[in-house]
Amino acid sequence: MTKMLRGAVVAAALASFVPFVGAQAEVTELKIMAPAAPGGGWDQTARSMQQALQADKLVSNVQVLNVPGAGGTIGLAQFVNASKGDPHALIVGGYVMVGAIITNKSPVTLSQVTPIARLTGEFEAIAVPANSPLKSMADLVAALKADPSKVSWAGGSAGGTDHIAAGLILKAIGGDPKKLNYIAFSGGGESLASILGGKVTAGISSLSEYDAQAKAGKLRILGVSSAKRLPEAPDVPTFKESGVDVEIQNWRMVAAAPGITPEQKKELSEVVEKMAKSKAWTDMLKQKGWADTYLAGEAFDKQLAADIAATTTVLKEIGLAQ
């Protein structure tokens, strides 16, 4: 009932902005859904896209619509139901959505939208207080092997990227992910304070959360989840270098509506690619400190499928999904 009503809101809204256009027409207008409240990461991505698209006159009329709630799954459900076949509708999403779909038992999944491209991403990092006895990833691994429950991890909400990454690490070194002693915090500031105050053994979150503290000598970063060392922290080894086979990226992507024609998909992909290569967009990424991890086409589809499979497995092993 409510879903129908909500669907109707969007349908009505879309009807106004989307006159029926043939498949061959240029993309003149776009409606980007940010499945989050204004101000959050996905909203900022959507609004940055809006700016970049309009700055370079790629698309003259771009609207952003916020539908917050439940890790993006409410917006996703509304998008799938109301935008079917609409070549002017886009949705911003991210890796967090993959986990949220599984843990919230969402009736719609990412397989129901048409992924266009991965735009940006952040890598996870593990940090300990400067006075911690753990000096390297190897020390942490040793502590985990001795007794995983004695190692407390601070990170974001349960089932989020941080939790998944911690679970993957414990699994990779042969531990039981169920014994992961993960302490969830609702805000970055609060979890960072608990690490700085030495209340927890280690923290796991995106590198940008810890970077400034590490540069000031208050935190030590043990490793990052990227494939290669990162330019922001060239001295920090990757997990793989330290013998922990975990690679994870908290990415953000853009997807189109379900049921659009291959031509329409191609057109939207071209627009997004042009945007991702534009100066306006790259400037914006630099300004916000977001890494350019653009990936499109089949390569992205493959990566997405792999991420979904790995996440499903680890969430089951942590005990968050059945």
């Binding site: 809101v9 009505a12 106004s16 204004p38 952003v64 619509l65 916020n66």
Partner: peptide, 12 residues
């Protein structure tokens, strides 16, 4: 504020 409240015939 660039916030979209629900639109109807009047708002269009």
């Amino acid at each position: 504020l660039q916030l979209s409240l629900p639109a109807g015939p009047l708002e269009r």
